[in-house]
Amino acid sequence: MGLNEAPLLFNFEVESSEDLTYIPMAVRFNLDRFGLRVSLAQWQMLPYEDRKLLARFPVEDDTAIEPNFDHALFEMLRTHANVEPEWFTPEETPAWRRVDAVPDGVVHQADLASLHAPSADQWARLDPFKRYVLAKLSRKLESNHDFVPAMKEFGLAG
């Protein structure tokens, strides 16, 4: 599986990412699946073209498909920031992978936004990457400004 032709950005991210100033969900997904953490400051030290390249990596849930994301990130950070990403052990079975239940955080975010949470059936039909995005946007107790736009973009809110 090769790189995407353009950075993978949802419509709700285009405005909020401010031209890749912030870490897009595609990059967050790959950071999480490889068990890597970078700060926003480290991300912003990378040249725009490097950030754009990292956002073109596929968002498949199989690290064997595209094993070069972590190598590319390491080289970019070493070259431009003289740092390395922090390692962590990825969750073996994160809530977004489950198709039988909507994660509590997603239900909570929907409640905060006065939206109906996705039904278990709607959740199961979502593309895994979209489930990841909603779960990622729902990890904190306070309202996330991108949650409602993501729900709308994914066809889960009017």
Results as ranks from 00 to 15, higher is better:
120 A>F: 01
47 P>V: 04
103 P>G: 07
133 V>W: 01
44 Q>S: 02
140 K>G: 11
36 L>F: 07
16 S>M: 03
9 L>M: 03
149 P>V: 08
62 D>H: 09
136 K>H: 13
120 A>W: 00
52 K>G: 00
85 P>T: 05
86 E>I: 13
133 V>C: 13
131 R>L: 10
143 S>Q: 14
156 L>W: 02
16 S>K: 06
69 F>G: 05
7 P>W: 09
152 K>S: 06
7 P>R: 07
39 S>C: 12
17 S>P: 01
118 P>K: 07
42 Q>G: 07
57 F>V: 02
5 E>R: 13
76 M>G: 01
61 D>Y: 09
136 K>T: 13
81 A>I: 03
123 W>I: 12
15 E>C: 03
98 R>I: 02
135 A>H: 14
62 D>I: 05
59 V>T: 14
11 N>P: 01
15 E>A: 15
70 D>P: 11
133 V>K: 02
2 G>N: 14
128 P>W: 06
20 L>F: 07
128 P>V: 07
151 M>R: 03
149 P>Y: 05
153 E>S: 02
147 F>K: 02
139 R>N: 08
146 D>K: 11
102 V>D: 06
140 K>M: 08
75 E>K: 13
22 Y>C: 01
156 L>F: 07
151 M>D: 04
134 L>P: 01
78 R>L: 14
88 F>K: 02
126 L>P: 01
154 F>T: 12
155 G>E: 01
84 E>M: 12
50 D>I: 15
118 P>Y: 05
10 F>A: 08
148 V>R: 03
48 Y>F: 15
65 I>W: 08
131 R>N: 10
43 W>E: 04
83 V>D: 04
95 A>W: 00
146 D>V: 00
136 K>I: 00
9 L>Q: 07
40 L>C: 00
